[in-house]
Amino acid sequence: MSIRFLDGGESCLVVELGEAINVALNRQVRALDLALEQARMEGVLEAVPTYRSLAIYYDPLIVGRDALWQQVGRLYDSLGAQDDRTPQVVEIPTVYGGEYGPDLEFVARYSGLSPEEVIRLHSEPFYHVYMLGFVAGFPYLGDLAERLAVPRLSTPRLKVPGGSVGIGGKQTGIYPIESPGGWRIIGRTSLRLFDPSSEVPTPILPGDMVRFVPIAPHVYAGE
């Protein structure tokens, strides 16, 4: 697999490792990210791992693009399969349906399943976290059960409460903070997905596994 270096302006080098969404490629991105972090190169400001590429932000008055290009190329060549951080499993306690998941009934009807089956199918898998993005703390999760794929709302809601668990097309995810949104909301978690007072502000990190754990409404409400 050959890698591509792309310029995202004069202070961003995009290292593209492939052209697909799969866990193996995404792990390579994570591994390169980790190797870059450990190399502590002068002039590198931050790096953003995504599905299949690593964006490296740098100060070109300290390190030139070509020098960075070469150093990163060497890091990539010496990557081992064991370089990825051991993923943690993050459990997302989720109240499904009712006031917390107003669209659960719709998803059940659309997919021809009972609400209980929707909950079982949604809470069964371990979802790979490809990356964080979109808004603070939002995890891009992998591989929703095909039967649960539903179209988005034709008119997005102006306010979706923080913690809402939703399905949009073939994806599932969690809204970390209150925001507008067009996904079908099937539940809500009390887990705080973004806490700016913490130096690592998100409990879920790229490369982790996420699992939704059904809980009763009174557990959510803290009774």
């Binding site: 995202g8 302006g9 202070s11 961003c12 995009v14 052209e19 697909a20 969404i21 953003v48 995504t50 599905y51 299949r52 590429s53 964006a55 932000y57 990356m131 993005g133 891009y140």
Partner: peptide, 10 residues
């Protein structure tokens, strides 16, 4: 595209 990082000024 497959979603990726968005630099300032992109």
């Amino acid at each position: 595209i497959i979603s990726d990082s968005t630099p300032l000024g992109a």
